[in-house]
Design a protein around this nucleic acid. Sequence first.
DNA 1: TATAAATGCAATTATTTGGTTGCGCAAACC
DNA 2: GGTTTGCGCAACCAAATAATTGCATTTATA
Lengths: 108, 108
Amino acid sequence: MEVRRDIFQAIADPTRRAILVLIATQAMTPNAIAEEFHTSRQAVSKHIQILTECELVKQEQKGREIYYSLEIEKMKEIDKWLSQFRKIWEARFHQLTDVLSTMKKQKK
Amino acid sequence: MEVRRDIFQAIADPTRRAILVLIATQAMTPNAIAEEFHTSRQAVSKHIQILTECELVKQEQKGREIYYSLEIEKMKEIDKWLSQFRKIWEARFHQLTDVLSTMKKQKK
DNA sequence: TATAAATGCAATTATTTGGTTGCGCAAACC
DNA sequence: GGTTTGCGCAACCAAATAATTGCATTTATA
């Protein structure tokens, strides 16, 4: 839990992914998040710490409560990485539709 | 290295991500892949095993060589998971452009 | 002001991970 | 036919990870 700390490692854990979905639309406290899962508050706290380290969540202190919410901008990094593969599958899709349209033309 | 085996855990490792990029456009043998990194063939083999288990790569045997390549369809699963967040950031983008266009109109 | 609530932080532990080493087994090559 | 090459597989090991437990600290509340 020390060295590696990137966004891909962060979303590798299913609990962390669930947390991200949970706080995507509304800020939540650690206690409230923990209640949603079968985990302890401390465990949630650790996950949030990891998410914070790679800037996936932001926090807002309100009295003794801390509200955590998703830093949506950071999620774009995954999208960016994925785009190189998206290019490939889109290219294949176009190839396929090209073939189909050629077949259609030939039928005429 | 036994129980959990999903695509997010698979792409958590930087070496595995690099392998995926490497074999995205051309099928490669374990030896050829290992030469690209600072790892042993066996280490690569293990990574490929993990990638195979979650169906991210396919293989084709040619004599004593095995060519591994990316199963691009599986990558769409990440895209699918990401789409729920994409909705959010696109919504915010539209909100922003709406505000900007309103300001522009008011200026006129 | 004492007590309860909300949280972070450190120490500990069991499990998982990534890597190495050492096989064994086919397929190619001499 | 013997040797080399390309692999996978199993055992082993050090490091990382996820979770628990036990505090300490700050902010509400009675």
